[in-house]
Design a binder for these strands. Structure first.
Lengths: 189, 189
DNA sequence: GTGCCATCTTGTCAATGTCAAGATAGGGTG
DNA sequence: CACCCTATCTTGACATTGACAAGATGGCAC
């Protein structure tokens, strides 16, 4: 009796299949509440197939985080036409791609020094810094404006995702975030 | 050969010993990177002793979170004399009691519906809401001011703890947070 | 003194992450 | 076309972990 129905070697895009399965598992049970073996079971492969491609669990999460940062940078870049919307895009990405986001900002889960992470991370940080500069009242406030804007948006996102906000149950996070961002950053300059 | 040198039954404050060991372990390996058995080993008790007092791992983390919210509420209350300092106290607590904080805002790790959690949580939320009201320009802005202030402070804290801020390596988080809070919330009213 | 029961230990089990070794297939080389 | 070679995937094994069940201990009420 074989455990796998049809051991199909070289079926190609197993890496993608496993990452997708991981994203779904993270979405259901959080970034640490799933197992590699259950993942393999769902993907229809043997229990050690993930380890072959990603080395270990940290390796898989490193791949997830790297892909996440790249998608994140893309999403932020698409919003740069209207500077005010970059913060909204931040929130929207976190909610629309929650599994990515939850891994990305938990660096103890993956290898943050991996080159694939660093490049995507720098790109995302670049968009944030550029956008914040456009909102800053004067050049010497650039650093503080960046810090404040990032903190504001990231805090809203974290609280929303963790369910700490009373508005989390119903309500539209995007609209709420937009109001908050315009109010606070509008007052700043 | 016995595993435990001197099986000391009824030695009393084992609950405290285990919680303290858990806090230390969380500080070293994050809120999910430790094991109950390793904990028991360090505390000098058998591998199942923790389970007896706390039911399971979630139960232990529930106790940690409850204690954390109580200490958190205490710390915030002590700062209410100067409303601006409540936010700073938020940041200081998170950094000085990082293990508590990291568990508290990860509700999937514990039983958030536990009564011991709820009461302490409500007390902390009360202080935050009251303080934010004092900073609000007008009553109809109360809700938005609370949301903005909380997001700002929580975001700063999360980013600092995760090491995402360039300032995380050196720098004084408390002073930086104080500047940011005064700048942003000062502009709001 | 005797029974009771909270406290803690010991034993056990399935599940998990990781490593090592084997099986398969497709592509390049002669 | 035969050969082998390597990436891909499987199978097998092992230590560790969380959880449960059953046993041992000792203080306390009566």
């Amino acid at each position: 009796m074989r455990e796998i129905d049809q051991p199909s070697y070289h079926h190609g895009n197993l890496k993608r299949v496993i990452i997708d399965a991981a994203l779904q598992a993270i979405g259901e049970s959080g970034p640490a509440g799933w197992s590699l073996r259950e993942l393999a079971r769902r993907a229809g492969v043997s229990h050690a197939a993930p380890a072959h491609h990603f080395g270990d669990k940290q390796g898989l999460l490193t791949a997830v985080a790297a892909e996440g940062f790249a998608l994140f940078a893309d999403a932020l870049e698409r919003a740069t036409a209207d500077v005010w919307e970059v913060g909204v895009a931040y929130v929207r990405f976190a909610i629309d791609h929650r599994p990515y986001f939850e891994v990305m900002f938990r660096p103890e889960l993956y290898r943050a020094d991996d080159p694939s992470i660093q490049s995507a991370h720098e790109r995302a940080a670049g968009v944030l810094i550029t956008s914040a500069r456009a909102l800053s009242p004067s050049p010497e406030h650039d650093r503080m404006t960046t810090l404040a804007a990032w903190s504001l948006v990231h805090g809203f996102t974290s609280l929303w995702l963790s369910g700490a906000l009373p508005e989390s149950t119903d309500g539209d996070p995007e609209a709420l975030a937009r109001s908050m961002i315009r109010l606070v950053l509008g007052a700043l300059r």
